[in-house]
Computed example of a mutant assay.
Amino acid sequence: MTAASANWARLNLIYPPSRSDVSEVERISTGIKELDDALEGGIPKGSWVVATGEPGVGKSILAMHFAYAGLKAGDPVVYVTTEQEYRDVVVQARQLGMDFGRYPTYSLGWRKEPEELPQIVVVDIFGLLKVARQLTEKSKEESSDKVKRYAALSVDTLIEAIGEAYKVLEVVEEGRGAPVRHVRLVIDSMSAFWVDKPVMARKYSYQLKIATHRDNVTALLTSQYAPTTGQAYGFGLEHIADGVIHMWMDDVESAREVRRHLIIKKMRMTNHSRKAFDVEIEPGRGLVLRQ
């Protein structure tokens, strides 16, 4: 036993971990049993978790699992997608055994009002463009001399769009910004908001978390890594996240096949598994994890 291990053992004898502390942490399912088991039952409620990795490793599919588990559990879902149109998300998810079409859906990009209370509100690039125009018009009304023009892929627009989605889902009360019901928030991917200004990643990440982090919101965000360098498009999101799930693949030229992997790098309030999973993407099942 190392000196560090001996010290840790002595501390546990003097201050044993409280079972009540562990049991009091409410867990939110990722939608993948093996990952939930590795997280002592799931993600701690109210956490911000980021899934990192290069294109093709399965981050978007992990986001689908998380959102779909919420829909099945009765949680309202805000699904921000900057990588593809939501209809493509629905088609891919159905191929992987997740039928999003079963649940009432509304997109912020639509001109019509929702005909029924949705369970999932989609914020794609068209919804972000609509919100950006609304913010710009509001700025013109407030001051014709100093008009602030909002871009679709700006954090200010994203924050406003999330707030609008909460209103559509009817999870916020008048005069209160925090949802009164538990909401799942998916943003796939955050890298789109600083791809032209990667040095701003940490500032934008803090800005978003301060504006939208609430005890009743559990978030899963994805962050792109460059396949050429293996580095993130801007550093900062991982630093403010409560949990980091990293996904990667072996070098395909050396392996001569696609071999994907996943590991939990950190998760607050959780004695998570330290071992990596091998990951397969299977029709009708989605992400299949094996250790």
Rank of each mutant, 00 (worst) to 15 (best):
T2Y: 02
A3T: 07
S5A: 15
W8I: 15
R10K: 12
N12C: 12
D21P: 01
V22H: 11
V25R: 05
S29A: 09
T30C: 13
G31Y: 01
D37H: 10
E40R: 05
E40Y: 05
G41P: 07
I43G: 11
I43Q: 07
P44I: 11
K45D: 08
V49K: 02
V50P: 01
A51F: 04
G53R: 00
G58C: 10
K59R: 10
S60Q: 07
M64Q: 10
H65E: 11
H65T: 07
F66G: 00
A67Q: 04
A67S: 08
Y68R: 04
Y68S: 05
G70S: 02
K72F: 00
K72A: 06
A73H: 02
G74C: 03
V77K: 09
E83G: 05
Y86N: 04
D88R: 11
R94F: 12
Q95I: 06
G97P: 06
G97Q: 03
F100G: 00
G101T: 10
Y103I: 05
P104S: 11
L108D: 05
R111V: 06
K112P: 00
P114T: 04
E116I: 15
E116L: 15
L117C: 12
P118E: 09
Q119H: 13
I120E: 04
V121T: 03
V123M: 08
D124V: 09
I125V: 15
G127S: 13
G127P: 09
L128I: 00
V131A: 10
V131Q: 06
R133A: 09
E137D: 08
S143R: 13
S143A: 09
S144L: 14
D145N: 12
K148D: 13
R149A: 05
A152D: 01
V155S: 08
D156Q: 12
L158W: 07
L158G: 10
I159E: 08
E164D: 14
A165R: 11
A165V: 10
K167M: 13
K167W: 04
V168C: 08
V168S: 05
E170V: 07
V172D: 07
P179H: 04
H182L: 00
H182F: 07
V183E: 10
R184F: 14
I187G: 00
S189C: 06
S191H: 05
S191W: 08
F193Q: 09
W194P: 01
V195S: 12
K197T: 15
A201I: 03
A201M: 09
K203T: 10
Y204I: 02
Y206V: 06
Q207D: 07
K209G: 00
I210T: 13
A211K: 01
T212N: 01
H213V: 02
N216G: 02
N216L: 01
L221I: 15
L221Y: 13
Q224V: 08
Y225N: 11
T229C: 10
Q231N: 04
Q231L: 04
A232H: 03
Y233P: 02
G234Y: 03
G236A: 02
G236V: 02
G236W: 00
I240K: 01
V244Q: 00
V244F: 08
I245G: 13
M247Y: 10
V252Q: 15
E253S: 11
R259A: 15
R259S: 14
H261W: 10
I263T: 12
K265M: 14
K266R: 01
T270Y: 00
H272S: 09
S273L: 14
R274G: 06
E282Y: 08
E282F: 05
G284K: 05
V288Y: 05
